[in-house]
C-alpha cells in the first residue's frame, strides 16, 4: 500500500513539475489521437449520413456492419495495418511502419466505424423530422447530408468525443504499428503498459492520471457546449 501511495505521490510530482519525457509522451498522444479523430470525422460523418439517406440495396446490412465494426478489437486493427505497412506488405514501400502516421492510420480505422454508426443514428432522427421539408425545398441528397450534419452539430460533438476517447485509450493497435519507440512512437497507453511491466509505477500512474483527466475534461467540455447550444439554438 505504501509503495502505491509513494508511487502516487511521485506521479503527482511528475505532473506538477511538468516532467519533460511525460509532457513529450502526452503531446504525441494528443497529436496522434486528434489526427485520427479528424480523419475519422471526414470519413465517418458523411458515411453515417449516406447510410441514413441512401436508398441502396444493402442498406440494412450496411447498418448492421457499421454497428458491428464499432467493436473492432484494436489488436486486430493493429495486425491488419501492420501487414499492410510491413516491408513485404502492399503499402510497405511507403516506409510508414513504426512511425506516428502508421499509428494515426490504425486509430482512424478503429474509430471511423464508431463515428459513422453513432452519427447515423443522430442524423437519421433528424432526417425523420426534416425529410419532407428538405424535399419540398428541392434539396439534392448531397446538400441534404450537409444540412443534417450541420443541424445536428452539437449532438455530433458527443460522437466525435466518443471516438476520441476510444482512440486515446486504446493500446493494442498503436503498440503493434508504432512499436513503442522511446521519443518517436511512445504514447500514453503504450508507455503505461511498458512502465508498469518494468515496475516504474510513478510514470505509469502519472500518465494514467493525465489520460483520465483528459478524457474527463473533453467530455465535460462537450457536455457544457451541447447544453449551452441547446439553450441558445433550441
Amino acid at each position: 500500500m505504501t509503495d502505491v501511495g509513494a508511487a502516487f505521490m511521485a506521479a503527482i510530482g511528475l505532473i506538477a513539475g511538468l516532467d519533460a519525457p511525460l509532457i513529450e509522451i502526452v503531446a504525441l498522444s494528443l497529436q496522434i489521437s486528434l489526427s485520427a479523430v479528424a480523419i475519422a470525422c471526414i470519413l465517418g460523418l458523411p458515411l453515417g449520413a449516406a447510410v441514413t439517406l441512401g436508398r441502396f440495396r444493402f442498406r440494412h446490412s450496411a447498418i448492421v456492419t457499421l454497428n458491428a465494426l464499432m467493436g473492432l478489437p484494436p489488436v486486430v486493427v493493429g495486425l491488419f495495418v501492420y501487414l499492410m505497412l510491413s516491408r513485404a506488405g502492399p503499402l510497405g514501400a511507403l516506409g510508414l511502419l513504426f512511425t506516428p502516421p502508421a499509428m494515426i492510420i490504425a486509430q482512424a480505422i478503429l474509430i471511423t466505424p464508431i463515428i459513422a454508426a453513432l452519427s447515423r443514428q443522430i442524423i437519421e432522427d433528424a432526417w425523420i423530422e426534416y425529410e419532407e421539408q428538405l424535399r419540398s425545398l428541392g434539396a439534392p441528397p448531397r446538400r441534404a447530408v450537409w444540412t443534417l450534419i450541420w443541424d445536428t452539430r452539437f449532438s455530433l460533438v458527443t460522437v466525435v468525443l466518443a471516438g476520441f476517447g476510444r482512440a486515446a485509450a486504446e493500446v493494442g493497435a498503436v503498440i503493434i504499428v508504432g512499436g513503442n519507440i522511446d521519443g518517436v512512437t511512445r504514447v500514453m497507453t503504450t508507455a503505461i503498459a511498458l512502465e508498469t511491466s518494468k515496475g516504474d509505477l510513478p510514470l505509469a500512474l502519472g500518465l494514467g492520471i493525465i489520460l483520465m483527466a483528459l478524457v474527463l475534461a473533453a467530455n465535460a467540455a462537450a457536455y457544457t457546449l451541447k447544453e449551452a447550444a441547446q439553450r441558445r439554438f433550441g
Partner: peptide, 10 residues
C-alpha cells in the same frame, strides 16, 4: 408549408 414548421438550427 407544413402543419408543424420544420426550422433549421440557424
Amino acid at each position: 408549408v407544413f402543419q408543424r414548421p420544420v426550422m433549421l438550427r440557424r
